[in-house]
Amino acid sequence: MTPSRETLPALLELQGVDSQLLTTLARAKELQSSERVAALMTRRTRAIAAARELDAGQRAAQDAVARAEAKVSEIQTRIDRDTERLNTGGTSKDLMGIQHQIDTLLAQRGRAEEEQLSAMDHAEEVAADRERKQPLLRAADAEARAAVAERDAELTRLREEHARLGAERSRLAAGIADAPLLERYDRLRTARGGGRIAVARWENGTCGACGTRLSPADAAALEATPDSAVPQCPECSAMLVL
């Protein structure tokens, strides 16, 4: 056996680690671009905006009630003042004028009280609508937060796993003395965009890298590869451990 052929099992172990590294990177990329998380965050943003609108609507309704109450109170104060003037007496003309003013204020108070009742009814409707919708909005916020926390926790785990695998790869690569074969392995692995299987087992006439089952003639030729050469799959060029 040549040193190159003896190195293939070590390369096979290195290939296993490299495949795991690719898997962790692919999963991390998938998590970072998760459509589910993006959709939940969009829903959360809309929920927050809706909650703010509900809060603003409630404040506006409460302000309207306060203004209506203040208006009724102001008119009542004027009525009380004019009633006191009326009770103190005066000329017939003055008293008629005061009474007319009181009658006018009473009519104004009636309209103001109607506006007050309308504002109070509206405020109650707004509060009830807010009360109905808030649980749904809080649920949207909570679901999005949970999804982000879950994603971030898995990303942390993947980063730790990637660091562990990176250290393992360095250890395995440092233990391979056949530098030319290691370079050949890396070229095959990173060719055509990367992610290829550069070394695999040859079992039952099938390439462990691409899954191709060779014809009896091709299989025989492969198995007859001289010890001075490294067996390669004729379909995917992966180095094979016979």
Rank of each mutant, 00 (worst) to 15 (best):
E160Q: 10
R159F: 05
A127T: 10
N87P: 01
R132E: 14
E125T: 12
T91F: 03
D55V: 13
E69H: 13
M41V: 08
V37S: 07
A64P: 01
E69C: 08
L155A: 00
D94N: 10
D129W: 01
G90N: 03
L117P: 00
A163N: 08
H122Y: 06
E74Y: 04
R43F: 03
L106Q: 15
G110V: 12
A112T: 00
E124I: 05
D94A: 11
A28Y: 01
D63V: 03
Q20K: 15
A127I: 01
A107I: 07
R145F: 03
R27H: 13
R138C: 02
E131H: 10
R138E: 15
R111N: 11
H122C: 02
D63C: 05
A56W: 02
A47S: 12
R164F: 04
R164N: 10
K133I: 00
E35F: 06
A28V: 07
Q99Y: 06
V65N: 01
G97Y: 06
V148I: 05
T45F: 04
S33F: 02
D152P: 06
R67Y: 07
K71L: 09
A68H: 02
A149D: 11
T45Y: 07
A50H: 04
R151N: 13
R145W: 00
V126G: 08
A139I: 01
A61C: 03
S33D: 13
I79Y: 06
G97D: 13
Q58I: 10
E160K: 10
A70N: 12
A64H: 04
A60F: 07
T104V: 08
L21W: 07
S34D: 11
G110P: 00
I48H: 04
A28N: 10
D55A: 15
A149K: 11
E69I: 08
L54M: 12
R59N: 09
D94R: 12
Q101G: 11
R46I: 02
L136G: 14
E131I: 05
L25Y: 08
Q99R: 15
A50L: 05
T83I: 06
R81I: 10
A26F: 07
A26K: 13
S118D: 15
E115A: 14
Q134D: 10
R145D: 12
S73C: 05
E161D: 08
L31F: 05
T156I: 12
A147E: 03
E125K: 12
T42A: 15
Q20T: 02
T88L: 07
D121S: 11
T91E: 04
L137S: 00
L86C: 00
R46S: 09
V72W: 06
V148D: 05
A163W: 00
G89W: 02
A38D: 05
R159A: 13
E150A: 12
Q108A: 15
L95R: 06
E35T: 14
A64Q: 07
M96W: 03
S73Q: 15
I98N: 02
Q76Y: 06
R44I: 11
L105M: 14
A119R: 01
P135W: 01
R159M: 10
I48Y: 00
A140S: 12
T42E: 15
I98G: 02
D129R: 13
R164G: 03
A51N: 09
I48L: 09
